[in-house]
């Protein structure tokens, strides 16, 4: 990796203070409902999120925000920011993206300041969807879009694998195997998003969305989504 790209490893590591560990993206309900019976089921579920679900949309939105910052197009950036929040399918999924996005902006603003993040935080009042916050910061620091998308995609998958391990869906070893198996799909999703426009948004992970709705009334919960 080029040394100039190292900030991505920091920003998208589980140690970066966005609280990613608190969100399961509905996995907690899916496990309760019996949809994640073994490692293969978990891998199948996550691969659909990558190719047909939130990760695909997140990557497209990240890229759109990134390009708007590079172009100095505040109007488009505001539109992408609004759309990213509106695409949440449930209260908990909105919480998941806005809490991490706002925490990310705050942490970057304090420790890795740049003009783009400052201007964006001012314009939005701090409420930002996570992929948009990452896109703005990466563009503001001159980091390459493709690597940013790849790092974001990997962080998304690794965080959900970690959530599944904590839920007891799989052990550490199977969790790592799943992350390794998902890598080609993550790289592909990042590549497609780099060439996509907002018109390409869309998905079909209906039962993942339903899981986030059902999770809101789940009796015992480790996670906030």
């Amino acid at each position: 990796m080029h040394p100039a790209h190292l900030p991505l490893m920091v920003w998208l590591s589980p140690a970066f203070p966005v609280g990613a560990f608190a969100y399961s993206h509905g996995l907690e309900w899916a496990f309760e409902a019996g949809d994640l019976g073994d490692a293969a089921a978990l891998e199948g579920w996550l691969s659909d999120l990558v190719a047909h679900g939130a990760l695909r949309n997140d990557a497209i939105l990240l890229a759109a925000a990134y390009r708007a910052v590079v172009a100095g197009d505040e109007g488009t950036l505001a539109e992408v920011a609004e759309l990213s929040l509106a695409l949440s399918p449930s209260a908990e999924r909105r919480l998941e993206t806005v809490t991490q996005g706002s925490a990310f902006l705050l942490a970057i603003g304090k420790s890795w300041p740049c003009a783009a993040v400052e201007a964006f935080a001012r314009a939005t009042g701090g409420d930002a969807a996570y992929p948009v916050a990452v896109g703005v910061a990466a563009a503001g620091h001159g980091l390459p879009l493709t690597q940013t998308l790849q790092a974001y995609a990997l962080a998304f998958a690794a965080n959900l694998v970690s959530a599944a391990v904590r839920l007891g869906v799989v052990g550490q070893t199977d969790g790592q195997r799943i992350t390794a198996a998902l890598l080609p799909a993550l790289v592909a999703a990042a590549g497609e998003a780099g060439a996509a426009t907002l018109d390409d948004l869309g998905g079909s992970t209906f039962r993942s969305d339903l899981a986030s709705l059902r999770h809101e009334t789940q009796y015992t919960r480790l996670f906030r989504s």
Binding site: G44, W45, D48, S204, T205
Partner: peptide, 12 residues
């Protein structure tokens, strides 16, 4: 085939 997948439709 897509709707058969658990994260999408589980046969819906």
């Amino acid at each position: 085939a897509a709707l058969a997948r658990p994260a999408i439709g589980a046969g819906a």
